[in-house]
């Protein structure tokens, strides 16, 4: 049977691989999705850093058998909120860049347009 650690680690690996592939496409929509996927990978990684525990409370109680590390859970909550905001910002930026240039390349500046104001 596959261990939980193996499944979580493979999930992180797949998310990261897909994310890197999408970011390298250098088109705004894939890049936004790619950044989101890498963010998910990092968040899951961060969550797993407190060691994986099943059916354990994240608080210490006298009658509990053990406890799950609460700190990574707090950290990942912060990271999720921040990355959600970041994704919103980058979507707006990408949309503006597309509307202004009619081009969805991340690097919309063409050679030869240097110095254009």
């Amino acid at each position: 049977m596959l261990s939980m650690e193996f499944i979580v680690a493979s999930t992180i690996a797949m998310l990261t691989a897909a994310g890197i592939y999408l970011v390298l496409r250098a088109r705004t929509f894939p890049v936004v999705l790619g950044l989101a996927l890498i963010t998910y990978a990092v968040n899951v990684f961060l969550f797993a850093m407190g060691r994986l525990a099943v059916n354990l409370p994240p608080v210490i109680r006298s009658d509990a058998a053990g406890y799950a590390d609460p700190l990574p859970q707090a950290l990942v909550l912060t990271a999720i909120v921040i990355s959600f905001g970041m994704t919103a910002v980058i979507v707006v930026m990408a949309l503006r860049a597309w509307l202004e240039s009619g081009n969805d390349h991340v690097d919309i500046e063409q050679p030869g347009s240097e110095g254009e104001q």
């Binding site: 950044l35 980058i90 503006r96 860049a97 991340v106 500046e109």
Partner: peptide, 21 residues
């Protein structure tokens, strides 16, 4: 805003986000 500015912005945003991740 403006075309040239937004081009530079996208480069800046993507690279800095990756570094932060």
């Amino acid at each position: 805003g403006g075309r040239r500015r937004l081009s530079g912005t996208m480069t800046y945003v993507v690279l800095n986000l990756l570094a932060t991740l």
